[in-house]
Simulated scan of single mutants.
Amino acid sequence: MNRGPLVSVEWLAEHAKDPNVQIVDVRWYLVGKSGADEYAKGHLPGAVFVDLGRDLAGDPARGPGRHPLPDAAAFAATLARLGVREDTLVVAYDDSGGSQAARMWWLLRYFGHPGGRVLDGGIGAWVAAGHPLVQDVPTVEPAPPLGLRPGGAGVVDKAAVARLRGADPRDAVVLDARARERYEGRSEPVDARPGHVPGALSAPFAENLTAPGGTFLPDEALAARYRALGALDAKTVVCYCGSGVTACHDLLALALLGREDALLYEGSWSDWSRDASLPAETHSP
């Protein structure tokens, strides 16, 4: 059974060879491993590897943050290479509960393509269901580049987030999708400063899942989680993370609950933390 942009292993096993379905492997690691190497060791049949830094982000030198959004022409070229047409369903998966796959889903939505999907449970659920992995790289016929336009999903910058600080929770809620130890400033492996945007609430993407790397919680449990954070009632909801990637997981969870208007802080903590003029908190509100 599918839930909005989430597709089940059962559905994908049945539809993997459909000509309008393209499976993409977006495994990525902050340190220690290479997504390309993991893909080479074994991936879903028919899956093409997508590099998060090269294909799902722009040049970090121009910012904001470590994974700025790609421009429309660059993303259109990526989709063309993947054979994606207007009616293609792009099913993304990873091995971390959708934390990178959600970025692919969100970018497709941002650029006006309705076909973004995420494999619920990712490669782990595929293997657990008894389906094989392969090492062969499929040959994909390129498609004509699509005429993409940004704006299908909302984006904000650090100035907008700064204006929302201290707002009445009924008006605005800012959610931090990173692990709690990074939110609280107890660990910061990559960015300029530890801590979080003052006033932001901790909403680790991993808590959207039934288990680490697992499937999404049922809608009732997700609704209870985000209602407790005020995210179902606030007029404005903004999600951020380290660089704008795993925040898309919270945006996906909110979309499942009907909050498709939630916004991404593009540069996220990697953008905020490098600006010494902006404050940081290292405790929970």
Results as ranks from 00 to 15, higher is better:
M1P: 13
N2S: 14
R3E: 11
L6H: 04
E10A: 15
A13W: 05
K17P: 07
Q22G: 03
I23T: 14
D25P: 09
D25F: 09
V26L: 11
V26H: 06
R27A: 05
R27S: 07
R27F: 06
W28F: 13
Y29I: 08
V31S: 15
A36D: 13
A36K: 15
E38F: 01
E38R: 09
A40I: 04
K41G: 07
F49L: 14
V50P: 07
V50S: 06
G53K: 12
A57F: 06
G58F: 02
D59N: 12
P60E: 07
G63M: 12
P64N: 07
R66V: 12
L69Q: 06
A72K: 03
A73I: 07
F75V: 04
A76K: 02
A76H: 05
A77V: 13
T78V: 15
L82G: 08
R85S: 09
T88E: 04
T88Y: 02
D95F: 01
S96K: 15
G97Q: 05
S99N: 07
A101E: 03
W105E: 03
W106G: 02
L107A: 03
Y110T: 03
F111Q: 06
R117F: 11
D120P: 10
I123T: 12
G124A: 14
A125H: 04
W126H: 05
W126N: 04
V127M: 11
A128C: 07
A128H: 10
P132K: 12
V134D: 08
T139L: 15
V140W: 07
E141K: 13
A143G: 09
P144I: 04
R149A: 15
P150M: 13
G151D: 12
G151M: 13
A153I: 10
A153M: 10
G154H: 12
V156H: 03
D157E: 13
D157T: 12
K158I: 13
A160H: 14
A160M: 06
V161S: 02
A162C: 08
D168K: 13
P169H: 13
A172G: 12
A172N: 12
V173P: 00
A177H: 03
A179T: 09
A179Y: 04
Y183V: 03
G185C: 09
S187K: 11
P189M: 10
V190G: 03
D191S: 07
R193H: 10
V197Y: 01
N208F: 00
P212D: 12
P212T: 08
G214F: 01
L217I: 05
L217C: 02
A221D: 14
L222Q: 01
L222I: 00
L222V: 00
A224M: 02
R225V: 01
R227K: 12
A231L: 00
L232G: 00
D233L: 03
T236R: 05
V238R: 01
G242E: 07
S243E: 08
V245I: 15
T246L: 08
C248Y: 06
C248I: 11
A255H: 00
E260H: 06
D261V: 01
L264T: 09
W269H: 03
S273P: 04
S273H: 04
D275H: 14
S277G: 15
A280Q: 08
A280W: 02
S284C: 14
